[in-house]
């Protein structure tokens, strides 16, 4: 479904992503772990096309999309949620979701019909809102919504496009234990054929939802394995204790 081959990204003399390769099968849940500054978000930006790699390729459904723009990859079923909320702040939760659904379904180009009154769009909005526990907040203005609601909407926007590959950048960042639990449930209940790549710091959640785990450090893949192998890996433990340094 999604494949990275020898991805590299340098900013001047700084190499942020270094020869990263991995392959995601259909329906696979892959978690990316790594300390701050490991290059996880940069890797996401390379995968979705927000950054152009210095070297390497990205393949989506067997097609080379390395030079394809963000919108082209999104149209091919690649969706992402952001580490920092990236919403339509002046609009309501419903309007936010409607924009996502309309864009994904091609109804954003309608000149005669109101997408906010379209039955199909409203059905998807209701479904997605239920998935991310936003059913009671649909008419809330995003700029005045609590942080938790905004975080849920961040994931909701990505889900509303009906993706085949979903990239989630720290979906539980900054939320309390209850919401982490809710996200945990959400991740477990998403369709089995949905391929997911998740950056997550909450180890319990990450290792519970993952089929495989990739660990990045200094922009390099330093470990790849199953959740059990991750738990028992001294290397991963060392990285998370903060003492490991491949460049030392």
């Amino acid at each position: 479904m999604l494949e990275a081959l020898g991805l590299c990204k340098t900013f001047g003399a700084l190499r942020v992503t270094n020869d990263v390769s991995f392959s995601l099968e259909k329906g696979e849940r892959r978690v990316i772990l790594g300390p701050n500054g490991a290059g996880k978000t940069t890797l996401f930006n390379l995968l979705v096309g927000e950054l152009e790699p210095t070297a390497g390729t990205v393949q989506l459904n067997g097609d080379d999309v390395t030079r394809a723009g963000v919108e082209a990859r999104a149209q091919m079923g690649l969706a992402r949620s952001y580490q920092k909320n990236n919403l339509f702040d002046q609009l309501t939760v419903r309007e936010n979701l409607a924009l996502a659904v309309a864009t994904a379904t091609g109804k954003s180009a309608w000149f005669r019909k109101d997408t906010l009154k379209d039955a199909e769009i409203n059905r998807i909005i209701v479904d997605v809102a239920a998935q991310v526990a936003l059913s009671d907040h649909l008419d809330l203005a995003v700029e005045s919504a609590p942080y938790g609601v905004r975080r849920q909407l961040e994931v909701g926007l990505a889900l509303a496009t009906g993706p085949s590959v979903l990239l989630m950048d720290e979906p539980t960042s900054g939320v309390g234990p209850e919401m982490i639990k809710a996200f945990h449930t959400l991740l477990k209940t998403l369709p089995e054929n949905l391929t997911m790549l998740i950056i997550e710091h909450d180890m319990d959640l990450a290792l519970d939802v993952a089929d495989r785990v990739t660990v990045l450090n200094y922009g390099e893949v330093v470990f790849e394995g199953t959740p059990d192998e991750t738990r028992s890996s001294p290397l991963v433990e060392e990285i998370y204790l903060g003492g490991w340094d491949s460049h030392a």
Binding site: E71, A74, N86, F88, Q90, A98, A109, W110
Partner: peptide, 22 residues
Amino acid sequence: AGFGRSLVGLRSNETRMRALGM
């Protein structure tokens, strides 16, 4: 209509609209 709604989305957050596939 859908076009006008999307136009407002563009004004509000162009990066996100692009990420949604526009």
